[in-house]
Amino acid sequence: MDANFLMNIVKSNNLDENIKLLSASIDDKIVFSTSFGIEDQVIFHAIFSQKIKNIETFTLDTGRLFPETYALWDKTLLQYNASIKPYYPNTEQIEEYVQNNGINSFYTSVELRKECCHIRKVVPLKRALTGAKIWITGLRAEQSDNRNGLNVIEWDEHFQVFKYNPLLHWTTVDVKEYIKKNSVPYNILHDQNFVSIGCAPCTRAIKEGENFRDGRWWWEDQSKKECGLHKQ
């Protein structure tokens, strides 16, 4: 299996068709990671509305998510009668980090913020991707300049997995239209100018004129805004 082989499977412009073809064509483990953002809800609908069983859906519960995110998690499970596997941080690592640095120490330095992201997100992600050959994500080119250079199929050297970005060339309008057309539940924070929703202490609504990622780790320089899940 290589990138060209996968591209031939997902060459349609139809998301639902591509997801169905991928699931029918690949015997290896396929996983989809959701953070319950609006893009992820689109992909979730494409999987579960078609009752696809061989794509494992998981989420990383950092322990610091918004109440609105947990509410959407519950609503999504009920609406689709779905299964979402949660992955949690290592208890001892979190306890040591908070004891040594404080509960909100990520505000004090980039290094401590990245350490918090590593414990709460990257380490659980490594467990979630164990044995997976394809990782489906909700990345879009419109989200940042770095993501604008991605391909629909990427080889992730760090996690040793093919990354499939089915919404890469979708616009925000495309996403919202799909949500409305299919009555897909979404995080109500999106209606309050939260465009990229992560941990509550590290996410705010964006202001007029700001870009997609300005609401994440807003106290840091733009060039340092990554958590290790996606190296782009």
Rank of each mutant, 00 (worst) to 15 (best):
W135V: 05
E115L: 15
L229K: 09
R213G: 13
D174V: 05
S105Y: 04
S25Y: 02
K207Q: 14
W155F: 15
Q41W: 01
C117W: 11
L150N: 07
Y87W: 07
S196K: 08
I26A: 10
C199N: 10
L129K: 11
K121I: 11
T130E: 15
L60M: 00
V173F: 10
P201Y: 02
G215R: 02
S144K: 02
G215P: 07
N18P: 03
N211L: 01
W217H: 06
I134L: 11
C227M: 01
T34V: 04
D145I: 10
T76Q: 00
V152P: 01
E208Y: 08
D174K: 01
G63P: 02
K231F: 15
Q143C: 05
N8Y: 05
S49C: 09
A71E: 13
A141R: 14
P201W: 04
L189H: 07
N148Y: 13
Q192I: 00
I43S: 06
N211W: 01
F106S: 10
H230W: 13
A132Y: 08
E226D: 14
V184Q: 03
W170H: 12
L72A: 03
H169D: 12
V10C: 08
T57M: 06
V195E: 06
K29S: 12
Y178T: 06
G228Y: 02
D214Q: 13
I43V: 15
S196Y: 09
E56A: 00
T34M: 02
A46P: 01
K133F: 08
T130D: 14
N100Q: 14
H158D: 10
Y178G: 03
V123M: 11
V122H: 11
A132K: 09
E39H: 08
Q99M: 07
C199L: 00
L189E: 06
Q143V: 04
E157S: 14
V175S: 11
E115T: 13
S83N: 09
H158S: 09
I153T: 03
P86L: 10
P185Y: 08
A205S: 14
K126Q: 15
I197E: 05
S196H: 07
L72H: 08
P89K: 06
E17V: 10
I206M: 03
M1R: 06
S33V: 04
H45D: 15
I26E: 02
D40V: 02
F32T: 00
E142A: 15
G149P: 01
P166H: 01
S83T: 12
R147K: 09
R213N: 14
Y107T: 01
R64A: 05
E142D: 15
F212K: 00
G215S: 09
I30D: 02
A82D: 05
T76Y: 04
T69S: 13
E96A: 14
F36C: 07
E17G: 01
D2E: 12
Q160G: 09
V10P: 04
K163S: 04
D191Q: 12
Y178M: 03
I206L: 05
N165E: 03
L168K: 05
G131Y: 10
W218I: 00
G198S: 11
S223Q: 14
E142L: 07
Y87R: 05
I84S: 05
H158L: 05
K20N: 03
I119L: 12
P86M: 00
R216I: 09
A24D: 14
N146D: 13
L21D: 12
Y80T: 04
Q143E: 15
V175Q: 07
V122Q: 07
D145A: 15
A205L: 02
E208T: 09
P86T: 00
